[in-house]
Amino acid sequence: MKTGLQTVVHPVKDLVRAKALFRALLEVEPYADESYYVGFRSAGQDVGLDPHGHARGMTGPVPYWHVADVRTWLAALVEAGAEVLQDVQDVGGGKLIAFVKDADGNLVGLTQDPAAS
């Protein structure tokens, strides 16, 4: 089961400047404001800023599909020809993420909320 695209994470080089830009764009304060990640919620969407994204292979924003079982969906994407760039990782509180690159270089993310673990 998947609930759709609800999260987009942007790799950023200057977290302070990116945070100011997205604060102005979204007109909300971040719900998470750490040196390793800044997250905003606006209009039913999560928008994240990842200062380490470029180092992990993020070449642009990554849309994250919310799924019930991230490992099953990751295996299905790999079977379909995707290359794993970020294997399943717990990013805190039981929230799991992973992302892949398709044959055209597009990035696709998967996320599993703790309640689905």
Rank of each mutant, 00 (worst) to 15 (best):
Lys2Pro: 09
Lys2Ile: 14
Lys2Asp: 09
Gly4Trp: 00
Gly4Ala: 01
Leu5Gly: 08
Leu5Thr: 15
Leu5Phe: 07
Val9Ala: 00
Val9Trp: 03
Val9Asn: 01
Pro11Met: 08
Asp14Leu: 01
Asp14Ala: 00
Leu15His: 09
Leu15Ile: 13
Val16Arg: 13
Val16Met: 05
Val16Asn: 05
Val16Gln: 14
Ala18Met: 01
Lys19Asn: 03
Lys19Arg: 13
Ala20Asp: 14
Leu21Glu: 14
Phe22Asp: 03
Arg23Cys: 01
Arg23Gly: 04
Ala24Ser: 06
Leu25Val: 14
Val28Ala: 02
Val28Gln: 11
Glu29Ile: 12
Glu29Arg: 10
Glu29Asp: 13
Pro30Asp: 02
Ala32Asp: 11
Asp33Arg: 08
Asp33His: 05
Glu34Arg: 13
Ser35Asp: 15
Tyr37Ser: 02
Tyr37Pro: 14
Gly39Pro: 03
Gly39Phe: 00
Gly39Leu: 03
Phe40Thr: 14
Ser42Tyr: 04
Ala43Met: 07
Ala43Leu: 07
Gly44Phe: 05
Gly44Arg: 07
Gln45Pro: 08
Gly48Phe: 01
Gly48Gln: 02
His52Arg: 13
His52Ile: 14
His52Ala: 09
His52Tyr: 11
Gly53His: 08
Gly53Gln: 09
Gly53Phe: 05
Gly53Leu: 05
His54Met: 10
Ala55Tyr: 02
Arg56Tyr: 00
Arg56Trp: 05
Gly57Cys: 00
Met58Cys: 02
Met58Arg: 13
Thr59Met: 05
Gly60Leu: 08
Val62Asp: 00
Tyr64Pro: 08
His66Gly: 00
Val67Leu: 00
Val67Gly: 00
Val67Gln: 01
Val67Ile: 14
Ala68Trp: 02
Asp69Ile: 14
Asp69Ala: 03
Val70Met: 07
Val70Lys: 12
Arg71Thr: 15
Arg71Ala: 08
Thr72Asn: 10
Trp73Met: 09
Leu74Gly: 00
Ala75His: 10
Ala75Thr: 14
Ala76Glu: 14
Leu77Pro: 12
Val78Phe: 04
Glu79Phe: 06
Glu79Asn: 02
Ala80Lys: 10
Ala80Arg: 15
Gly81Asn: 12
Ala82Gln: 06
Glu83Lys: 13
Leu85Trp: 11
Gln86Phe: 03
Asp87Ala: 10
Val88Arg: 05
Val88Cys: 00
Gln89Thr: 15
Gln89Ile: 08
Gln89Phe: 03
Asp90Ser: 06
Asp90Trp: 10
Val91Trp: 11
Val91Glu: 07
Gly92Asn: 09
Gly93His: 06
Gly94Asp: 04
Ile97Arg: 08
Ile97Thr: 15
Ala98Asn: 04
Ala98Pro: 12
Ala98Leu: 06
Ala98Arg: 06
Phe99Lys: 06
Val100Met: 00
Val100Gly: 03
Val100Thr: 15
Val100Cys: 11
Lys101Ala: 09
Asp102Ile: 12
Ala103Leu: 13
Ala103Arg: 14
Asp104Leu: 05
Gly105Thr: 11
Asn106Val: 13
Leu107Asn: 08
Leu107Glu: 07
Val108Ile: 14
Val108His: 13
Gly109Phe: 01
Gly109Glu: 02
Leu110Lys: 13
Leu110Arg: 06
Thr111Ser: 04
Pro114Glu: 02
Ala115Asp: 11
Ala116Tyr: 04
Ala116Asn: 05
Ser117Phe: 00
Ser117Gly: 10
Ser117Ala: 03
